[in-house]
Amino acid sequence: MRTEETKKENLVAQAYEMKKEGWRLVCITGTDLSTDSEQKMEVLYHFARENEVRHLRVETDGTENYPSILSAYANALFLENELKEMLGIPVDGIKGELLLRLEDEVKAPLKRLRGVSYETREIKVEKNAEVAPQ
């Protein structure tokens, strides 16, 4: 599988171009590649046109603003929502309330913490806990 590197600044323009050429957005895949030393995420955009496929690869650190291609591809709505929910990537204009029903408890289940463990469950400190002696 061959991927084409691209910058996230060029992403939206490239998406428009691909739409004009008749490419269909198949899926967006986000993967957390963070290690102990650096935080790194890759986002793959899979496009298809009849029997051909193309994959755009964008790297991001997962914290700064990330462009949305919703204006070019309407079906990116669910996919980008999932990107935000599962990996915590702050996609522009996306609320991220699609799949996870327990927004308060579970945050970004696919996001890595220091490359090893996963931030799967962030249990809120209850009020009573503050009163408890240290």
Partner: peptide
């Protein structure tokens, strides 16, 4: 539309 009632975190 609202989906997500069957979410089981399988991708994880």
């Amino acid at each position: 539309l609202q989906v997500g009632y069957c979410h089981r975190g399988l991708e994880r």
